[in-house]
């Protein structure tokens, strides 16, 4: 039996007290234990940012890489060893600025990994600049007169890219968030969970109270209805839906390349070159 405490990392999280990341770390650990995934079969990959420090705080195979580059690393880990549960984790700056092209293409490829984004509309680690999800008018170190650039919508972006599982949670509702993450990990294919995760230090607008007033739980009648999911994902303003927006069954990348027919690449034998192999060069 796997216990949630088995996932306790060697290092205590050093996030600001009440940071939204705590709820996500706790949800990930709880869900992994619930699903009976062993720490040694778990790879947690991240980029750079406050949230990206998470691999240090969990007992698993952690990889704390470069800003924006979480998804290529996570994809290749999964491809090398599909037996692993691979969780890619990072912030909105990491994922939707420098990592945009990887986000798009990883979603499109339907690699069987789970990507959780701690979305707080601000850069925390660099002490408070506007992120790609910052709302118009958001005042920050990089936008002292208010942000004039429209925010990106991670959900519609993921849907447009072809993600096969798209969800949004809220760090202020850890139980609901855990359920989303559970379904995301169970999903066979690329699963994306955007999490409203208040930054208590650098974002005084998008606070817990702000989200508590706006969020409501949404459950689609037909999770495979793309148009409905897209329309729902576009909702903004006073009411913000959270829940699983879209699920579709598509072939995973790992099902389509014949290389995996011989088992996980990491377990495959090395091809011993024979004289016969060389005949084509004669």
């Amino acid at each position: 039996m796997v216990n949630v405490n088995d996932f306790n990392g060697r290092v205590k999280p050093d996030w600001c007290p009440a940071c939204g990341n705590f709820a996500q770390l706790s949800a990930i650990k709880t869900v992994l234990a619930e699903l009976g995934v062993e720490p040694h079969d778990t790879a947690v990959i991240s980029g750079i940012g406050c949230s990206s420090n998470l691999p240090e705080f969990i007992n698993a195979y952690g990889f704390h890489g470069l800003h924006g580059r979480v998804l290529p690393v996570a994809s290749a880990v999964k491809w090398a060893n599909p037996k692993l549960t691979v969780i890619a984790y990072g912030g909105d700056g990491d994922g939707f600025f420098e990592g945009t092209q990887h986000f798009f293409h990883t979603a499109k490829r339907n690699v069987d990994i789970t990507y959780i984004v701690s979305d707080n509309q601000v850069f925390g680690l660099t002490t408070g600049q506007a992120s790609p999800t910052a709302e118009i008018g958001f005042v920050s170190k990089s936008t002292p007169d208010g942000n004039i650039e429209r925010p990106i919508n991670p959900l519609t972006f993921a849907l447009a890219a072809g993600a096969t599982f798209v969800a949004r949670g809220f760090s202020g509702d850890p139980k609901h968030l855990s359920e989303l993450i559970k379904q995301a990990i169970l999903h066979r294919g690329f699963s994306f969970v955007d999490v409203f995760s208040p930054c208590v230090t650098f974002n005084k607008i998008n606070t817990y109270d702000y989200f508590r007033k706006k969020v409501y739980k949404y459950e689609p009648k037909d999770p495979s209805d793309f148009t409905a999911a897209y329309q729902k994902a576009e909702e903004s303003g006073e009411r913000l839906p959270i829940g699983i927006f879209y699920v579709s069954k598509e072939k995973r990348y790992e099902e389509m390349d014949p290389v995996w027919s011989a088992g996980p690449i990491v377990d495959q034998n090395i091809h011993a070159v024979t004289e016969e192999d060389l005949e084509e060069f004669l």
């Binding site: 990889f63 290749a76 491809w79 090398a80």
Partner: peptide
């Protein structure tokens, strides 16, 4: 053949990290 060379090298690192010569 991934989306760019940044992805290519990060994938290569991921594969080697996971124990596969890449």
């Amino acid at each position: 053949l991934p989306e760019d060379e940044i992805s290519a090298i990060n994938m290569t690192i991921g594969a080697n990290y996971a124990g596969v010569r890449s």
